[in-house]
Design a protein around this nucleic acid. Structure first.
Length: 467
RNA sequence: GCUCCUUUCGUCUAGAGGCCCAGGACAUAGCCCUCUCAAGGCUGUAACACGGGUUCGAAUCCCGUAAGGAGCGCCA
């Protein structure tokens, strides 16, 4: 059997990491088994669905590199198909019209709650054939009254529900539009979905869906309900923490592979391995190894992983992700000593050990671009004092004599200079660093000089030495 | 309230009856390295929710309890 998985977000809120993780699991499972991954947008709630949310889903998935093999399908485009099934079920008696008013149902619920019962529809129109003028009926699915539905869940194991706990759910509203649980069933059946991987908040919906799938004569897919992601405080994921648009992570300077790596390790592990490339994830992932309990989102670990990916990736692959961040901090690449991708790749290598995000990398790389540099007042006071200036003045002559402006010779010259003067390298490197970068932090001074180039380095040194 | 789900260091997890007075990772503390910041190395602090069983032996099996979560919509 060929595997077909799907990611079916609803565009009523912006796609966030919770959704991304279920998408990732579905994608991983399909890739791992050489199957098909479908993207389906569940937009039956026209009131709350927004174009913005659809955009985030499509762009987000694209940024993440979770490519779908089919779709995106939109449920609103499939209404005729849903109507067809409803008409058929009505004819076959698998569904029926219910003329209850909302007030009536509200009253029923209130009474049941008062009796400490689980509120549910009591089936009062289940066997009626008359109608009630003035009320647009809803269509309800005729759920079996007896027996059990057994979900053989890949992560939770065997979960049993009694049909007596289930009521006849609404599959079409008074205005004729179909509802979520019903659309899911028709879609999963029509699209040949073999593995349904979704959040475990849907576990309770599963028996109803299985009953409808049976009514449709469709094969029951394999279910895997993965635990939810909690906020760092252990509470439900909120806007304040993590429940932001997945595109926010791009803006914050994360690499898609790092975010995916972080997310896959939430509720899943493979021995002691923490860092996974995309290929490693695909090779090692199995839905059956996913944990059952919810896990808290930990921003620090995401940050750490992002740096791990920055450090272990081929720098050339990082450059395209860095560029937008350079632009965002106002850097014009053309004003650097090298305006090509190769130069940017060298910056990536030089900076990646000292930053955790691409955003930080861009901010920390300002001095590699533009001609002059602005000296940080505090740094200048400390390192460009009389003593520092005296050292730099002498050093200037030494640097003039360096013919091969690359890290190794520069390093040798700097060390020889310090040794000759009987001072530590720190007394030389720090004033020089402040002079050429404007501040006290940069990659090793020899590499910094090399990347800046001879001309730019000397010009900045001279400028710093001016009274 | 009813139904369903969950419970190992602060956090993510390893652990499928003896290998565990519980291992790894993030975070945190200290040390080392060092031209800055980092990265890296070493060391430390820190957990089996609780109570009963079963067993020679339980984090692992069983039963309760507690706590957290989800669902119970003409939302998805």
């Amino acid at each position: 059997m060929s595997v077909v998985t799907r990611f079916a977000p609803s565009p009523t809120g912006l796609l966030h990491i919770g959704g991304v993780r279920t998408a990732l699991f579905s994608w991983l499972y399909a890739r791992r088994h050489g199957g098909k991954f479908i993207l389906r947008v569940e937009d039956t709630d026209r009131e709350r669905s927004t174009d913005e949310a659809v955009r985030v889903i499509v762009e987000g998935m694209q940024w993440l590199g979770l490519a779908h093999d089919e779709g995106p399908y939109f449920q609103t485009a499939r209404f005729p198909r849903y109507q067809e099934v409803i008409a058929q079920w009505l004819a076959e008696g698998k569904a029926y019209r219910c003329y209850c008013t909302k007030e009536e149902l509200e009253q029923l619920r209130t009474e049941q709650m008062a009796r400490k019962e689980k509120p549910r529809y009591d089936g009062r129109w289940r066997d009626r054939t008359d109608s009630r003028p003035g009320v647009d009926p809803v269509i309800r699915f005729r759920n079996p009254l007896e027996g059990e539905v057994v979900v053989e869940d890949q992560v939770h194991g065997r979960v049993v529900f009694r049909n007596s706990e289930l009521d006849d759910l609404v599959i079409a509203r008074g205005d004729g539009t179909p509802t979520y649980n019903f659309c899911v069933v028709v879609d999963d059946a029509d699209m040949g979905v073999t593995h349904v991987i979704r959040g475990d908040d849907h576990l309770n919906n599963t028996p109803r869906q299985m009953n409808m799938l049976a009514a449709l004569g469709a094969k029951i897919p394999v279910y895997a309900h993965v635990p939810m992601i909690l906020g760092p405080d252990g509470a439900k994921l909120s806007k304040r923490h993590g429940a932001v648009s997945v595109l926010q992570y791009e803006e914050d300077g994360y690499l898609p592979d790092a975010l995916l790596n972080y997310l896959v390790r939430l509720g899943w592990s493979h021995g002691d391995q923490e860092v996974f490339t995309r290929a490693e994830m695909v090779a090692a992932f199995d839905i059956a190894d996913v944990n059952k309990s919810a896990s808290a989102f930990n921003p620090e670990k995401l940050l750490w992983l992002n740096q791990q990916h920055l450090m272990h990736s081929d720098p050339a692959t990082v450059v395209p992700y860095l560029k937008p961040h350079l632009a965002r901090v106002g850097i014009d690449i053309a004003t650097g000593p090298g305006a090509d991708d190769a130069f940017l790749a060298r910056i990536v290598v030089a900076q990646r050990e000292r930053v955790k995000t691409l955003k930080e990398m861009a901010q920390a790389s300002r001095y590699f671009f533009g001609e002059a540099v602005e000296l940080d007042a505090k740094a200048a006071t400390k390192h460009l004092s009389d003593e520092g200036r005296e050292v730099l003045t002498a050093l200037r002559a030494t640097l003039e004599g360096v013919t091969d402006w690359t890290a190794a010779p520069l390093n040798a010259a700097l060390n020889a200079f310090a040794t000759a003067r009987g001072i530590g390298l720190g007394k030389v490197a720090q004033p020089l660093r402040v002079a050429v970068t404007g501040n006290t932090i940069s990659p090793p001074i020899d590499l910094t000089l090399e990347l800046l180039g001879r001309e730019r380095s000397m010009a900045r040194l001279d400028r710093a030495l001016q009274p």
